[in-house]
Amino acid sequence: MPKPIRSSRRTWAAAWVVLCAVGLAATAGLNASSTPDPRPEKPVSAECAEYVADIERQLAEAQQESKGDGVLAFSRVRPGTGDDCDDELRAHLRGDR
Rank of each mutant, 00 (worst) to 15 (best):
L19A: 10
L19N: 03
L19T: 05
L19S: 05
C20K: 11
C20D: 11
A21S: 15
A21D: 07
V22A: 15
V22S: 12
L24H: 06
A25Y: 15
A25V: 14
A25R: 11
A26V: 07
T27I: 14
T27K: 11
A28Y: 14
A28T: 06
G29K: 04
G29S: 05
N31H: 05
N31E: 09
A32L: 13
S33N: 12
S34H: 00
T35G: 00
D37Y: 04
P38Y: 05
R39V: 13
E41T: 11
E41W: 15
K42A: 15
P43C: 02
P43E: 11
V44C: 07
S45E: 07
C48W: 05
A49V: 02
A49D: 09
E50Q: 10
E50H: 09
D54M: 03
E56F: 03
E56N: 06
Q58P: 00
E61Q: 05
A62H: 01
A62Y: 00
Q64L: 08
E65L: 04
E65V: 00
E65A: 06
K67Y: 08
K67W: 11
K67P: 01
K67H: 09
G68A: 09
G68T: 07
D69H: 13
G70K: 12
L72H: 02
F74G: 03
S75N: 12
R76D: 10
V77P: 02
V77A: 07
R78F: 08
P79R: 14
P79K: 14
P79V: 13
T81C: 03
D83N: 12
D86P: 01
D86Q: 11
E88A: 13
E88Q: 13
L89W: 03
R90W: 13
A91H: 05
H92F: 14
